[in-house]
């Protein structure tokens, strides 16, 4: 009888731990989605300010017209930011939301590189973004980000190689060299993500146990003691 009760109690704690874990994991994803929504809005403003500052006009002698960079910052920038922001509010915590965030964030790197005229310093945005995405503690998100970077380099390397490598006939595997450094960062971040998730799970289990213990004590206490507390 006692064994049955102990097993039932243990099962209840496991279920409670799982619920706590699911809840805190979802809370994390929702808060990360919202954080990225704010970042997307910030990047949109930054991209626009950058385009308006660096090259607002295209010139032909004395004549000027709006530089296509400004239109790119406005058009592509709006597209890149709008979808993750919409999903962050309409579908927070959804698995697709964070993968869309990863795609948009890596493409923001590509757009900012274009807007700053290919400045090598802007490429650091890629690695900063990977660090931000690791905040989801969901390693497949990092895989999506890596695939986006590799694909962008692969396609651009095929149709317009000199824009990346400065030469017209690079070896077919050159995109892998660039992707390697992303994989290098991602492989470590993925381990940290898994570790972070395991810690969340442990915290949930500890919390469930403490909760069960506290409830047991409460049940054992007298009505008078309960009333006094």
């Amino acid at each position: 009888m006692s064994d049955v009760m102990t097993e039932a109690a243990a099962q209840a704690i496991v279920e409670r731990a799982d619920q706590r874990f699911q809840r805190s994991r979802r809370d994390l994803w929702v808060s990360m989605d919202r954080l990225f929504a704010a970042l997307m809005a910030g990047q949109w403003v930054f991209g626009l300010v950058l385009a308006l500052t660096v090259s607002p006009w295209a010139w032909a002698g004395r004549e000027r017209s709006v530089n296509p960079h400004v239109l790119a910052a406005l058009g592509i920038g709006t597209l890149l930011s709008a979808m993750p922001i919409a999903l962050a509010f309409l579908r927070p915590g959804w698995v697709v939301t964070r993968h869309v965030v990863a795609v948009a964030q890596m493409l923001w790197s590509a757009l900012l590189v274009h807007l700053t005229g290919g400045r090598i310093e802007t490429h650091f945005h890629v690695f900063g973004s990977l660090g931000f995405l690791a905040g989801y503690r969901d390693w497949p998100v990092l895989v999506t980000a890596t695939v986006v970077v590799a694909t962008e380099h692969f396609v651009r390397g095929l149709v317009w190689p000199e824009s990346i490598y400065g030469i017209v006939n690079p070896e077919w595997w050159r995109f892998l060299e660039h992707a390697f450094w992303v994989v290098f960062a991602v492989s470590f971040l993925a381990v940290l993500c898994r570790r972070g998730m395991r810690e969340m799970q442990t915290l949930a289990e500890n919390g469930a146990e403490l909760e069960a213990l506290a409830e047991g004590e409460w049940r054992k206490s007298s009505v008078v003691t309960r009333a006094a507390s």
């Binding site: 296509p68 790119a72 058009g75 592509i76 597209l79 890149l80 979808m83 999903l87 579908r91 697709v96 869309v100 493409l107 590509a110 757009l111 274009h114 651009r156 149709v159 317009w160 824009s163």
Partner: peptide, 25 residues
């Protein structure tokens, strides 16, 4: 609806980058 919006978004993003690359090249 979400899937349709995502497909439309992906096509629009690829088109936008394609236009930007073309301008720059």
């Amino acid at each position: 609806l979400a899937a349709a919006a995502l497909v439309f978004w992906a096509v629009a993003v690829v088109t936008g980058f394609g236009m930007l690359w073309r301008y720059k090249a």
